[in-house]
């Protein structure tokens, strides 16, 4: 009897130890980034030899970093706008009638996510060279939209599929026109989904770096691209400062999203 009990207990302990170790594995690198940003020396070590805020001071004096920050915001908002418009319209159209075009749409929208970003990057670089978009913000926005749209699209598909469309029929029945009924009946039910979709698109763009690396020029380089260039030259805590800002933005975004919806729902939509 006790041996049974022991095995059960052992399994429980092993299981718990397993996922707690993974929890540490998942969060430790991010912790390293945040802690090293307060480093007092020019070397990244964890834990740092000394603590100070000098690298934060450096950040706000660096025109190059601040420019990259602006670029990231421009590209991020552009991507959020484009992906949300395309994704919401596409998902809504498919919800109205899932014809032969609709069946092609889902795989077509999804495939870019499964192609290594390096291949997408060089493909788009060659293409934008041909059509003369090279070096523009638009080229990065379009590339990021290729990745962000599937997320918005699938979030909206699941939102629309849960919406009770009889409500719309009821609204028509009660005399509301197409736009009025959309605004009055559909929108209140799906606006959280649209918001979360747009937020995801923004974050995707803010974090994406391989395609941006291929497509950006020194004038349009985003934060991850600059961070990458810096890391390859010398690993100093400035990168950690920038990364900490990016992590904070992400955490802020999650908090906002959790307020708008809830975490579990969000994580289901993400996959």
């Amino acid at each position: 009897m006790t041996s049974n009990l022991h095995r059960e207990t052992f399994e429980d302990v092993a299981f718990r130890a397993g996922y707690l170790a993974l929890l540490v594995f998942m969060l430790l690198p991010l912790l390293v980034v945040i802690v090293t940003s307060f480093s007092g020396s020019g070397r990244i070590a964890f834990p740092p030899d000394s603590f100070s805020l000098v690298w934060y001071g450096e950040f706000f004096e660096s025109i190059r970093w601040l420019n990259a920050f602006t670029n990231s915001l421009i590209v991020g908002f552009g991507t959020a706008l484009a992906a949300t418009v395309l994704g919401v319209m596409g998902a809504f159209g498919q919800e109205i009638e899932d014809g032969s075009f609709g069946k092609l749409l889902a795989p077509l929208v999804l495939i870019p996510l499964l192609i290594p970003p390096v291949i997408l990057g060089i493909t788009l670089l060659m293409y934008f060279n041909e059509v003369g978009l090279r070096g523009s913000y638009a080229s990065i926005v379009l590339a990021h939209t290729l990745w962000a749209t599937p997320l918005v699209y699938f979030v909206m598909r699941s939102v629309f599929s849960r919406f009770d469309w009889q409500q719309l029929d009821a609204a028509h029945d009660l005399g509301a026109g197409p736009i009025r009924s959309f605004v009055q009946v559909v929108l209140p039910n799906v606006k959280h989904g649209i918001f979360v979709g747009a937020l995801l698109a923004f974050i995707i763009s803010l974090q994406e770096f391989v395609m941006a690396l291929f497509l950006s020029t020194p004038n349009t380089e985003t934060i991850p691209v600059l961070a990458w260039t810096e890391i390859r030259q010398a690993l100093d805590p400035m990168v950690s400062v920038v990364s900490t800002f990016l992590i904070l933005i992400s955490v802020g975004a999650i908090v906002v999203a959790v307020i708008a919806t809830n975490l579990e729902w969000l994580s289901k939509q993400l996959s």
Binding site: L27, V33, Q207, V210, V239, L246, S250
Partner: peptide
């Protein structure tokens, strides 16, 4: 869930 979502939203460079 947080530990999964947070790295997902952090750039690959970091």
């Amino acid at each position: 869930l947080f530990s999964v979502v947070l790295p997902l939203l952090t750039t690959l460079v970091i």
